[in-house]
Each structure stands twice: as structure tokens, then as C-alpha cells.
């Protein structure tokens, strides 16, 4: 258990990778963190070989323990190569943490779209978008998922983050019904979400007819009032919103 406790004394890390891999393979329930910590400190290439190399034993325990050293692993392999490999080696149990960690580290990466589909199926995009909601690449990530047809993931991400970008991205690819659901989900979570500005920026210079179609989804008075403040030049929307607001408790 010396190696597993992180003592690398006497091990030639490049020449004796097999010894390290065997230690991991035989670890059973013993935590792998100390060994990976020591490898990350001593030789990130050896760490990458043990975790992601062709002879890596893989497994959820190894991959989950390796996520804290993602930066070192990416230093040895390219991110585009490392993350799909970690996903493959970690299996279903580690898939979501792998995806979430990748999304936090590379919020704007286009390869996350395919990775999301592999991990989340019909909810593809949810983990990625939730992880990068406060990153400048969020809008582009929404657009990438919309273009890949990840409708449910965008709707769910809209509700999880309260952001308007998923709805705008769905509008941009012509998914009108899904846009309505995403818009409703965003406003339920964050009534002050800048939905009007973002949808108008995708739709065109005369968004009145668009907003009239959105207003029936409103469920919260606070959201209706926030929208009303943007409608001074949108007469149809303003009239309908006044009616809606009067009818809301």
C-alpha cells in the first residue's frame, strides 16, 4: 500500500508505469487520491499515462479521483483528447462529473456538444450550460447546442439558470415551441431575465407580434411587470400585458 499512500520512493515514473498501473488495478476500495496527488506533483506525464493511457485500468474510482488533477492531465494530453478518453474510462458512474468538470474548464469548447449528447442523451446540454451559465461563452454554447438539436437540454438549462440565452438560441434555429417553453422556464426562475432584449436581437426590429405570442406563458406577476417595462414601443404587447397583469393576483 506504499504506492497507494503516495510514496513514490524508488519508482522510476516513466520506466515503471506498469508498476503504478498494477497498483491502481489492485487497489480495491483503497482511495486512489494520495497516489494521484503524488503523481500530479512529481510527473504529470506519468499521471496522464496511469489515468488515460492505453494501459489504464480505468474505472469510475480512478477517473473521479483524477478530476481534481484535470489541469495536469490536460497539460500532458490535449483537452479534446483527454475528456472523451476520461468519459470512456470512467463509465456511466463517472460520466456526469466528467462532463461537468470538462464544461467548467472549457465552457466555450465546441466538442462539449458531442460529449454532452453521449452523456446526457435527450437532456444534452443541461450539464454544460448549467456549468457555464456565468461565462461569456454561454450564449455561444447555447447556440451550439441549439444547432445540434438539443432542445430539451436547452429548455431545462433555461429553467436551471434563469437565463434567456437558451430561448434566444432556440428562436435562432426556428424552434418556436421550444423557445416558448424555454422562455417560460427562464421567467419562472428569474422574472427579470432580459428576455425581450435577447429575443429581439434574434428576431428583428419589430418584435411586437413575437412578444404577443410569448405573453400567454407568463405565470408570475413579477415577470409580467418586468416585461411591461420594455414594451413602451410595442403597443400590442403592452395592451395584452396590461390585461394579464390586471388579472394576476
Amino acid at each position: 500500500m506504499t504506492l497507494l499512500s503516495g510514496d513514490l520512493t524508488g519508482v522510476d515514473l516513466r520506466a515503471q508505469t506498469d508498476v503504478l498501473i498494477d497498483a491502481v488495478r489492485c487497489a480495491g476500495d483503497h482511495p486512489l487520491g494520495p497516489l494521484l496527488d503524488a503523481l500530479a506533483e512529481a510527473d504529470p506525464l506519468a499521471l496522464a499515462e496511469v489515468v488515460c493511457g492505453t494501459r489504464s485500468p480505468g474505472g469510475a474510482a480512478l477517473v473521479l479521483a483524477a478530476l481534481t488533477h484535470a489541469e495536469r492531465i490536460e497539460g500532458a494530453l490535449s483537452p479534446r483528447g483527454a475528456w472523451p478518453r476520461l468519459l470512456e474510462l470512467g463509465g456511466p458512474e463517472a460520466a456526469l462529473p466528467v462532463l461537468t468538470t470538462a464544461a467548467r474548464r472549457h465552457p466555450g469548447a465546441s466538442w462539449l456538444v458531442a460529449l454532452s449528447r453521449k452523456v446526457e442523451g435527450n437532456k444534452a446540454g443541461l450539464a454544460h450550460l448549467t456549468a457555464c451559465a456565468n461565462h461569456p461563452a454561454f450564449a455561444q454554447a447555447c447556440r451550439n447546442h441549439a444547432e445540434a438539436g438539443h432542445v430539451e437540454g436547452l429548455v431545462l438549462a433555461s429553467g436551471a439558470t434563469g437565463r434567456s440565452e437558451p430561448a434566444a438560441a432556440l428562436l435562432g434555429v426556428g424552434k418556436f415551441d421550444a423557445m416558448l417553453r424555454a422562455a417560460g422556464a427562464a421567467l419562472d426562475t428569474a422574472p427579470e431575465s432580459p428576455l425581450v432584449a435577447q429575443l429581439a436581437a434574434v428576431w428583428g426590429p419589430e418584435p411586437d407580434d413575437l412578444f404577443v405570442r410569448i405573453l400567454p406563458i407568463l405565470r408570475r406577476k413579477q415577470a409580467a411587470e418586468a416585461l411591461r417595462s420594455h414594451c413602451r414601443h410595442l403597443p400590442k404587447s403592452a395592451r395584452l400585458l396590461d390585461l394579464i397583469i390586471r388579472g394576476m393576483v
Binding site: 435577447q198 429581439a200 428583428g204 426590429p205
Partner: peptide
């Protein structure tokens, strides 16, 4: 009319 600028927000700041 004025065309939008291709991109994520083609009609940002547009009026008609």
C-alpha cells in the same frame, strides 16, 4: 429595411 449582421445577435440595436 436594414439587414441584420450575421451572428448570434443579428438584430441587436435594430429599429424600424
Amino acid at each position: 429595411v436594414m439587414p441584420g449582421t450575421p451572428g448570434r445577435w443579428p438584430f441587436a440595436g435594430h429599429v424600424r
